[in-house]
C-alpha cells in the first residue's frame, strides 16, 4: 500500500513577537512541522508496518521546507521519503489542495492520503476536504480509528454527538483526529537514518486558482488587563487567601 501523509511547516506560536500596535513579527519564529500533522504520519507508519508498502511525506511550502533540520525531523518520525512542492504557505485551502493534488497524482498509485486535524497556523481543517473533492476520492474528516480490510478501510469517525463507523473504499483521503495515536519520539537511530532518506522536489502545477479572500489585517487580539497578583506560601495559607478572594466575588 502506498500512503501519503500531508504535513505543513508553520512558525512556532511561542516565537511570534507581538508589537504594542498588535502587529506580529514572525521573523524570529522557528518553523516546525505542525503537531497534528504528526498524527497523520504516525497513523500512516502503523498501517504500512502492518500491511506493507511505503509511507511518503508530502508538503507544500516556502523556504522553511529547504531546511535540513526540518526535513530530518519529519523524516525521522517514520516517513520513507519526502516530497516537497514549492508554494505559498499562506495560500487558502483550495490553492494548497490544488498543489497537493497534482503532487499526489505525480507520486502515482497512492492508495491513501492522510492529513492531521488541522494546520498549526490556520487550523481551518479544510485542506483534506478540498483535496478529496479535487482528487474525486471518498473523503472523511475526524477519523479516530482506522483499520485496513482488504480493498477498503473501516474507520470510526468522531462526531460532536456520536461515532460513525464507515467503510471507505480505497483509494481515499482521510483526516485524522489528534487523539487517534501518540506520535513517536524519534530516537538517535531514526535521526541518523533520516539523513539518508530521499527528498524529491516537484514543480508546482501551473495556473493556481485565484484566492478566495483578500487579507485585510493580521493582528493580535486586544488583551484584557488582568490583576496579575501572585500569592505564595503554605497550602493552608494560600487556600485561605484564595477562598477569601472567591467568596468576595
Amino acid at each position: 500500500m502506498r500512503i501519503v501523509a500531508c504535513i505543513k511547516a508553520a512558525p512556532e506560536d511561542q516565537d511570534i513577537h507581538v508589537a504594542p500596535d498588535r502587529t506580529l513579527d514572525l521573523s524570529r519564529a522557528a518553523w516546525k512541522v505542525g503537531a497534528y500533522d504528526l498524527n497523520a504520519v504516525e497513523a500512516g507508519r502503523r498501517l504500512v508496518d502492518e500491511v506493507g508498502g511505503e509511507l511518503v511525506g508530502l508538503s507544500m511550502g516556502g523556504e522553511a521546507l529547504a531546511a535540513t533540520k526540518l526535513r530530518k525531523d519529519v523524516l525521522s518520525r517514520g516517513l520513507d521519503r519526502l516530497v516537497v512542492v514549492a508554494g505559498d504557505p499562506a495560500g487558502d485551502a483550495l490553492q494548497t489542495a490544488t498543489a497537493l493534488a497534482a503532487a499526489v497524482n505525480e507520486i502515482g498509485d497512492v492508495d491513501l492520503v492522510l492529513l492531521g486535524a488541522g494546520s498549526a497556523d490556520r487550523y481551518a481543517q479544510q485542506v483534506g476536504t478540498v483535496l478529496g473533492a479535487l482528487l474525486g476520492r471518498p473523503t472523511l474528516n475526524a477519523v479516530d480509528h482506522l483499520e485496513v480490510q482488504r480493498d477498503h478501510v473501516r474507520v470510526e469517525r468522531l462526531l460532536e454527538d456520536g461515532v460513525q463507523v464507515v467503510d471507505v473504499p480505497l483509494p481515499a483521503v482521510l483526516a485524522v483526529t489528534s487523539g487517534i495515536n501518540t506520535p513517536r519520539i524519534a530516537g538517535m537511530k531514526d535521526i541518523l537514518a533520516a539523513g539518508k532518506k530521499p527528498v524529491l522536489e516537484v514543480t508546482p502545477p501551473v495556473g493556481a486558482p485565484a484566492a478566495t479572500t483578500r487579507t485585510v489585517s493580521v493582528l493580535a487580539p486586544e488583551q484584557k488587563d488582568r490583576g496579575r497578583v501572585l500569592v505564595e506560601g503554605t497550602a493552608t495559607e494560600v487556600a485561605q487567601q484564595l477562598a477569601q478572594f472567591l467568596k468576595a466575588l
Binding site: D13, L24, A120, R122, A211, T212, T213, R214, V216, L219
Partner: peptide, 19 residues
C-alpha cells in the same frame, strides 16, 4: 468581511471574501 483566529490564537485574521 469576516474574522478567524490564526497561529493558535496569537492573531486574528480579518479578510474580505472576494470570490
Amino acid at each position: 468581511v469576516v474574522t478567524h483566529p490564526a497561529y493558535g490564537g496569537v492573531a486574528v485574521v480579518t479578510e474580505e471574501v472576494t470570490a
